[in-house]
Computed example of a mutant assay.
Amino acid sequence: MSTLQIGLAIIGGLVLAGVVAYNAWVTNKNAPRTARERVPAPGGSVPGPEERAGDENLPFAPADVTESDVQRVEPVFGDEPGVPDPVEPAEVSMAAASVGISPLVSQPPEKRPGLDALIDVIAPLVLEHEVSGDALLAALPGTRRVGSKPFAVEGQSETTGEWESPRLGQRYRALQAGVQLANRSGPLNDIEFSEFVVKAQAFADAVGASPDFPDMRAEVLRARELDAFASGHDAQLGFMLRARRTSWSPGYVAQHAAKLGFVAGALPGRMVLATTQSGNAPILSLVFDSQAAMAEDPEQSALREIALSLEVTHVPRSEQPFLRMRQAATALAEAMEGVVTDDGGQLLPTEALDQIGTDLESLYDALDSRDLSAGSPQARRLFS
């Protein structure tokens, strides 16, 4: 072999090695960022919640909650035998502020909200004699809905005097039936009111009670008025966090979100920031592609955007949800090299965020003026 051939062979080998090295570099650069193993603190222990949270000057709960600690609670009147758990609603569209149609993840409340004349049609059921809770439960209809609205029966406790869902072993001298005036499916209509009358009458006949129904036209008119108010004050907020350069893996996102107090939600690709009050809705939801979360090897799944959302009417103003949403979005964007945008990909400047905060204060005031304060049982039922 001549010197020329040897030189050409060497050059060819170097070029081939360079191509292989370049391809490996490109592949590594474009691979999604993955979660890193937690480095033990001095002494071999894993940093505790206080140490983990110490990196952020944010008012979030420490990330020491597991998925099993957070359960989903729907704003309903009571347990309905034979009815499966509700399906998780679709995540909100990520507009800066919108009126629309949603999720609740939290610990179950000690007492479910009962009928309220503010948002329910209530019909007294007059009894000639006291009746047992066992008999009431046996006479309840198979479904607790009238059309798209929740239906409920309550008895006045003989011991406490409070209205409650019928319970075994209890005695009741007064009953009432009710149906919700409005929800995100719209106002109670004539057909639904008639169905309510039929269902309540059948129950009353079974337990020996005489119902006293209110005027249908007046109640339907009240339902429309309540629905009009709710439609104009049903706000949901959302930010998009988009990767500037390298994509993220689901584990990478979860690792950074956990530092801010987020825990796994009820569905794959969903995390929530739990409230401090038992039974309340989560303060924030963080959502990413569920397909990536369920992949055989999630760490090889590439995410280029995640959504951060706030169900305004479900979270009390005292939790400062919008402030915490802004702080979470900023912290995640800085930690993961991303940017905060609206659903159209437009950057959200400080001025726009300040204006949203101002508008929210007006919304909270309007809800308060109707005794439908954000996060209250009545608001959570109405906006569901």
Rank of each mutant, 00 (worst) to 15 (best):
L4E: 09
I6M: 12
A9T: 06
V19P: 00
Y22M: 08
W25N: 05
N28K: 14
K29G: 00
A31Y: 11
R33D: 13
R33N: 10
R36G: 12
S45W: 09
V46W: 09
R52P: 02
A53Q: 13
G54R: 14
G54W: 09
N57L: 15
P59M: 08
P62F: 07
V65Y: 03
E67H: 06
R72H: 01
R72I: 04
V73I: 14
V73L: 10
G82S: 11
D85M: 13
V99N: 13
V105Y: 10
V105T: 15
S106D: 10
S106W: 02
E110R: 13
D120E: 03
V126C: 02
E130I: 12
S132T: 15
G133T: 08
L137M: 15
L137N: 15
L140K: 03
S148M: 05
E154I: 11
G155V: 14
T159A: 15
T159V: 15
V179A: 08
G186S: 01
F193R: 08
E195V: 08
V197Y: 07
V198Q: 15
Q201P: 02
F203S: 01
F203C: 04
P214K: 03
M216W: 01
L226K: 05
F229I: 05
H233M: 04
A235M: 08
L237M: 06
M240K: 11
R242V: 09
R242Y: 00
T246Y: 03
P250T: 05
G261I: 10
F262D: 04
L267S: 13
V272G: 05
Q277N: 03
G279D: 12
L284I: 07
L286P: 11
F288D: 03
D289N: 14
M294C: 05
M294N: 12
E296Y: 00
Q300M: 12
I306P: 02
A307I: 00
S309I: 02
V312P: 01
H314A: 15
P316L: 05
S318Q: 14
E319D: 15
Q320P: 00
L323Q: 09
A328S: 15
M336W: 04
V339W: 01
V339F: 01
V340H: 08
T341Y: 03
D342I: 01
G345S: 04
Q346N: 15
P349H: 06
A352V: 12
T358R: 14
L360D: 02
L363F: 00
L363Y: 01
L363A: 03
L367V: 06
L367A: 03
S376G: 08
S376Y: 10
A379F: 02
R381K: 14
